[in-house]
Each structure stands twice: as structure tokens, then as C-alpha cells.
Design a binder for these strands. Structure first.
Length: 435
RNA sequence: GGCCUCGUGGCGGAGUGGCUACGCAGCGGAUUGCAAAUCCGUGUACUCCAGUUCGAUUCUGGACGAGGCCUCCA
């Protein structure tokens, strides 16, 4: 029952040994709630949900604490509220609600705690105070800045040295920074920017400090796993480590750092300018959540994934086959072959191969434990008139019984135009929505 | 320029120093009024060049190629 994971910190796959196997602790960076979540945002959510499930299976559901935050203070949110002429609170509420709805449809469990940044300003201010006291941060023009040179081994996670960073710095350096690599812990707010009173004046926190403050509150000064997208490795996670370690005087923050790879759409980087920006919400209008979930897991989490229509078709077919081979019921245990695949650095392609070899309760139990619902109903079904469809099918079967093939085919074509595909089996005729 | 990840059949995607997954598509067959669906069977691959080795897709070095980060993007 050993789990092995690739650790970004050590650049190797290693055996997972929790600090306390009665309370395995994991933190994952959640969304910044300024816009609908896109399919790229869904990747870490799904990947670490699978990890959460694996940990619960291994150590017991009551022995895993999973924290996934909501970042509800950020300049992107301010910009969005400005643009739409609504309040910041409206933006974050609307976006957060939609986010919850989206990921629920993807079969994602709720984390143990889902802290919001704005509920933890006090903790962030305290941490900043500590960093200043210990000489790791300083105040300048209403800002609090982290002094990167004050930390000897800054850069271990992203594997870069201070010299490299200074040499590679391409951004214009703000005049109040003592060192170009220093980053913001607190910044002043004015006008209609959100802000809170602090020892350094009215202002708001920098991005990185929130995760340090919230992870400490719910998981302690050190914990087991920290996850997120690979783009967060630098600077976000590097800076979290700097803040937490320097504030607490510890030699590590999390033992294991896991990062999921990026997602492309039909071979191209997803971006608004290319017009291939897909939200979870949009996909759910056409595809059942189970299909999106499986499609995300067809690629091992560290590899880049190419999100394609063809892939979704294949995922749909695979699920259809599996669901025809089993009955979702009481069984909810992972089959050993499925577990073993996941235990090897979340090898989900291997897991899928294992699922293809299963049937009955072993298959149903594994699928259920993995977060699949067994429901492949087309989300667009509601718009189709089931009574009319049934009437047409009955009419067609009468025509077939009369060997009136012309009429039978005509009805089938009529249904086809309605978006209904027929399947004649030994037990009669069934139908599904055309994709 | 620096750092990281990776190059497996038509496609997706595991894995291994010799026995070469799995899925999809294709092809052949069964079934079907005809399709679809379903079932059975089946071919095809390890980027290139050196080296180590009895033997490398798997190890080492190099070349070429792809993607990412270095800009508060998951």
C-alpha cells in the first residue's frame, strides 16, 4: 500500500510518507474568482480530487484534510467589477457560485475546508508583521515587501539562483524595491480598490501571502502535500515557501510539491485571442460531467494534455462501454489493479487500462470511488420531446413489422433530423441523442 | 540566454535491457430488411547518430524536434 509521487522539490518520484498518518494534510491553490472557470482551471481541480480520493482510500476518509482556497481579492477582480459596473462582491459571488456548480458536475468532492482570502486578512497582517520583525520584510511607500536576499536558499523549488533571476529580470523594477527580486506582501489601496486597515495604512494583501496564511491556519506550519498548476511553481509557490519558512523558521513548508501540466485545445494554446477559450460551463451544455472528467484523466497529470473533440468522443464511448458492463449500486471500492495504477504517481492512463479489464462490481465500485456517477444522459435531452420520440419509434416498428421499409426508413430519417439516433437490439429499439 | 518536461503504431497513451500494454480508428467476419449499435478476429511503432551490452525502444553521450516557466495565467 505504498504511494509514490513525483516531487517538484526533489525532481524525483518518491515514496509518500505522511507526517501524521492520522491526519494527512494537503493544500491546493484554488481559483481566483473573476471569471467563469475554463477547462484548464478544471485540471488541477480534477487531478487533486483524484489524489484526495486516493488518500482517503489509503488512510481513511476521516484522516485526510484537504484545503482548497478561493482567491477573492485580486486586481483582476477589481478590473472586472469596474468593466461591468457592478460591485466586487457581486463578481466574486457570481463567479464562486458558478465555480461550485461547475465542479460539482465534474464529480469533484468538496474539500475539507475552502477558505476565502478576504476572511483571513488578519492572519496575513500577522504574518507580515512577523516577517518584518525577523528582518525578512520591510516597509516602503505604503508597501510591505519581502526581502528575497534575506533568504539563503530561495529558489530551490523552481531551481533557480538569485543571480539567474536578477540577470533574467525583464520587468521594470519599482523604485521602492531594495532588490529587483523582492515581491509584494501588502500594497496600498485607493479609490474604489478593496482595502483593509493595517499597520502600514489602508491596503490589500499581495497574492502570495494569502496561501501562506491560510495553509498555516488549517494545516499548520508544515504539512504533507501542496499542489497546483505548473505555472504556479514560480513565482507563486516559490514565494509561498519563502514567506512560510521565514515566518516560521522551518526548513520546509510542504514535503511534497505536485504540479499538473498545462492544457492545449486542438493543438493550440488556449487563449482569448485565438477564440478557443472554453469554459467548463459551456462544455457541460453538451457533454455529461463524467465525460469531461474521464477525458481529463486520459493523460497523466504531469504531461501536457491536448483537449480535443475527438478525445471527448472517445471518452464518451469508453464510459458507455463500461456502464454497459456493470450496474452502479452498493459497490464503491477501488479494485486493486486500479489502486496500484494510481499509487504510481497517479498513473491514470494505466488506471483506464485496468478499468477496461474489469466488469461487474469491481468496475462499478472503482468508477464510483473515482468520482464517476454512472449517468451519461445527454444534457440537451430536456429539449427533446420524449413522448413524440416514443410515438415515432412505435410507428417505425409497426412499419418494420409490416415490412414497409420505405416508411420505416423515412421515420428513422425524421428522428435523425431531430437529433435522435436509434439502436435496434434483441430487446427492442432504444435511442440516444446524436453527437 | 537560463531552467524544466518530453519525443512510442493512423490517433490517444502505458511500459520494459531480451517475452512489444490498453483504448479509438482501419480491415475481415457474425448479427441486421438496410444502417447504427453490439460481438469475435486482425495488421501496424518505439525521432536520428554514436557508445555500453551477448542483446536497447528501454542505460550513457550527442544531434534534431515539441511544449512550458523566467511577466500576480491552472
Amino acid at each position: 500500500m505504498t504511494l509514490k509521487f513525483y516531487n517538484t522539490l526533489t525532481k524525483q518520484k518518491q515514496t509518500f510518507e505522511p507526517i501524521d498518518d492520522k491526519n494527512v494534510r494537503m493544500y491546493v491553490c484554488g481559483p481566483t474568482v473573476y471569471d467563469y472557470a475554463h477547462i484548464g482551471n478544471a485540471r488541477p481541480i480534477i487531478v487533486f480530487d483524484v489524489l484526495f480520493r486516493l488518500l482517503r482510500h489509503t488512510y481513511g476518509a476521516d484522516h485526510v484534510t484537504y484545503v482548497r482556497n478561493i482567491t477573492d481579492v485580486d486586481d483582476k477582480i477589481n478590473a472586472r467589477a469596474d468593466k461591468e459596473g457592478i460591485s466586487i462582491a457581486e463578481v466574486t459571488k457570481r463567479t464562486t457560485d458558478q465555480f461550485h456548480k461547475d465542479i460539482k458536475a465534474l464529480g469533484v468532492l468538496e474539500p475539507t475546508v475552502e477558505p476565502r482570502a478576504t476572511d483571513h486578512i488578519k492572519e496575513m497582517i500577522e504574518m507580515n508583521k512577523t516577517l518584518i520583525e525577523k528582518g525578512h520584510a520591510y516597509v516602503a511607500e505604503g508597501h510591505v515587501l519581502f526581502s528575497v536576499p534575506s533568504m539563503r536558499d530561495y529558489g530551490r523549488l523552481s531551481n533557480r539562483t538569485l543571480d539567474e533571476m536578477i540577470a533574467g529580470a525583464r520587468v521594470e523594477v519599482a523604485s521602492y524595491k531594495k532588490d529587483p527580486t523582492d515581491f509584494v506582501l501588502w500594497k496600498p489601496s485607493s479609490g474604489n480598490e478593496p482595502g483593509w486597515e493595517s499597520p502600514w495604512g489602508f491596503g490589500r494583501p499581495g497574492w502570495h501571502i494569502e496561501c501562506s496564511a491560510m495553509s498555516e491556519k488549517y494545516l499548520g506550519k508544515t504539512f504533507d502535500i501542496h499542489g497546483g498548476g505548473i505555472d504556479l511553481t514560480f513565482p507563486h509557490h516559490e514565494n509561498e515557501i519563502a514567506q512560510s519558512r521565514c515566518a516560521h523558521g522551518t526548513d520546509h513548508m510542504a514535503n511534497l510539491w505536485m504540479h499538473n501540466g498545462f492544457l492545449q485545445v486542438e493543438g493550440e494554446k488556449m487563449s482569448k485571442s485565438l477564440g478557443n477559450f472554453i469554459t467548463i460551463n459551456e462544455l457541460l451544455e453538451k457533454w455529461p460531467g463524467d465525460v469531461l472528467r474521464l477525458n481529463m484523466l486520459r493523460t497523466q497529470y504531469r504531461q501536457p494534455i491536448d483537449w480535443t473533440e475527438n478525445g471527448l468522443d472517445e471518452s464518451y464511448d469508453a464510459l458507455k462501454t463500461w456502464y454497459s458492463r456493470c450496474e452502479f449500486g452498493k459497490a464503491n471500492e477501488l479494485d486493486e489493479t486500479v489502486f496500484n495504477a494510481l499509487a504510481d504517481d497517479l498513473n491514470t492512463p494505466k488506471m483506464i487500462a485496468a478499468l477496461h479489464q474489469l466488469k461487474g462490481d469491481g468496475l462499478a465500485g472503482s468508477l464510483k470511488a473515482l468520482g464517476f456517477t454512472g449517468n451519461l444522459d445527454d444534457p440537451r435531452l430536456n429539449s427533446l420531446d420524449e413522448t413524440a420520440i416514443q410515438a415515432l419509434i412505435t410507428a417505425r416498428n409497426q412499419a418494420r413489422a409490416d415490412k414497409n421499409w420505405a416508411e420505416s426508413d423515412r421515420v428513422r430519417d425524421e428522428l435523425d433530423v431531430m437529433g435522435v439516433v436509434l439502436k435496434d437490439g434483441p430487446d427492442g429499439t432504444s435511442w440516444e441523442a446524436k453527437r
